[in-house]
Write a protein that binds this DNA or RNA. Structure first.
Lengths: 140, 140
DNA sequence: ATTTGATCTAGACCTCGCTCTAGATCGTAG
DNA sequence: CTACGATCTAGAGCGAGGTCTAGATCAAAT
């Protein structure tokens, strides 16, 4: 013990859950599914200890998941990183493909947004006019 | 109440599937789940005939679903419309709440996008430099 | 020493949103 | 009339992504 603690903080699963927004269940699930780059360290008593690298990786996972990357792709990415250098081109392809999907998703959402906003406007106007106006039903 | 009888072509389920992008299975499923405003008309032989109103509504449903509205909310919206006028304020709330969620989603995606784009940049640069550079692993 | 709370494993279970199957019927083309 | 494809119903099945349970163990506080 003594001086080395500050360099490798080593968090418990609960602390990691707090920091990543994932539940402890999800953390264990991700590990089982092979979504982590390396095996999580354990204490003598068998409890998980996460390094800051683990947490960083998990934060990336969260971002990728948030943006709709399937767990399978995440797993693939983790495998690539796990096998070390030499496959950066593939990692790049994977990420870039995902970025493109995200772009498409943003575009689609913006289109939806404008359709919805227009509808909201229709209803708002209708209400403002004291609901006397003609609002035909299969909502215009 | 509509002006043109000829403008109500009455489509089969297959045709509606084509036009909406939903499968025939999904169309029957949506109907069972009460996601449609009215009951779909039937031929004497029991086959569904969709009006252009049905199709319009379904196209709205598709947009709302695409942007992540759960079927339960869609059902609620359909119920409001089904019960006719008088609840426009609630319809407005429902749609506007969804619009806000979509906005948040777009924002989140844009954040993800920039994180990913940055990472793509890191890998690309690394590769351009002939992968001699230092790429530490839990992907920087 | 005891209690309390966090964590452990393995595996069952859940929600969501469809998708598919089976077996019957309809309707049109030859 | 016969075939054949589209449609019908009821209900089972599926894949994704977790979530939850049971029963045990660990670690810290009283």
């Amino acid at each position: 013990m003594t001086t080395t603690e500050a360099a490798v903080p080593s968090l418990s699963i609960g602390e990691v859950a707090e920091r990543t927004g994932l539940s402890v269940h999800a953390l264990r699930f991700y590990e089982r599914e092979g979504l982590l780059v390396g095996p999580v360290q354990r204490t003598s008593g068998g409890r998980r200890r996460y390094t800051s690298f683990d947490v960083e990786w998990l934060l990336i996972c969260v971002k990728l998941r948030e943006s709709g990357m399937p767990l399978a792709d995440l797993k693939h990415f983790a495998e690539l990183v796990r096998h070390g250098p030499g496959n950066e081109a593939e990692r790049l392809r994977l990420l870039d493909a995902h970025r493109q999907r995200v772009d498409a998703q943003i575009q689609a959402l913006e289109e939806c947004r404008s359709v919805i906003a227009w509808k909201v406007g229709v209803y708002a106007e209708h209400l403002a006019r004291g609901e006397a106006g003609g609002l035909w039903d299969p909502t215009p």
